[in-house]
């Protein structure tokens, strides 16, 4: 099963962390990414630029409106993602539990939809 691990942070809290705490988050994430690359479970993963760099696009009656900033105003922002393929949900959850941002904020784990299906 493929899963998307969505990683959230609160930018205000992030800035308030000590340098050592910030380093720990970065280093722990790098270590997990290396481990998942080696195990063949990581399909893709990236960090996202600061949410202030977001463009939100809406099209109404064929007219696009492009505004600066995220679609949903929230304290916590999506800061990165990992696309995983794991044998079981338990294994994917285990990875999510170890993800360092989960200690300070939260990560979300969501199964991907697939294009295959069985006729019923």
């Amino acid at each position: 099963m493929k899963y998307m691990l969505l990683i959230y942070q609160n930018p205000a809290n992030w800035e308030a962390l000590s340098e050592g705490e910030r380093d720990a988050v970065m280093n722990d994430a790098t270590a997990i990414v290396n481990e998942l690359t080696e195990s063949g479970e990581l399909i893709a993963g990236d960090g996202l630029a600061d949410s202030s760099q977001t463009k939100t696009v809406r099209v109404r009656d064929g007219v696009p409106a492009i505004t600066d900033g995220p679609f949903i105003e929230a304290k916590e922002h999506l800061v990165g993602y990992c696309l995983l393929e794991c044998e079981t949900l338990e294994r994917a959850t285990e990875i999510a539990v170890r993800w360092p941002d989960a200690r300070h904020w939260a990560v979300e784990l969501r199964p991907l939809m697939i294009a295959s299906g069985e006729e019923m």
């Binding site: 199964p111 991907l112 939809m113 697939i114 294009a115 295959s116 019923m120």
Partner: peptide, 10 residues
């Protein structure tokens, strides 16, 4: 509940 797009559609 399904994670299959064609099943969901069906």
């Amino acid at each position: 509940r399904t994670t299959s797009l064609p099943e969901k559609r069906h």
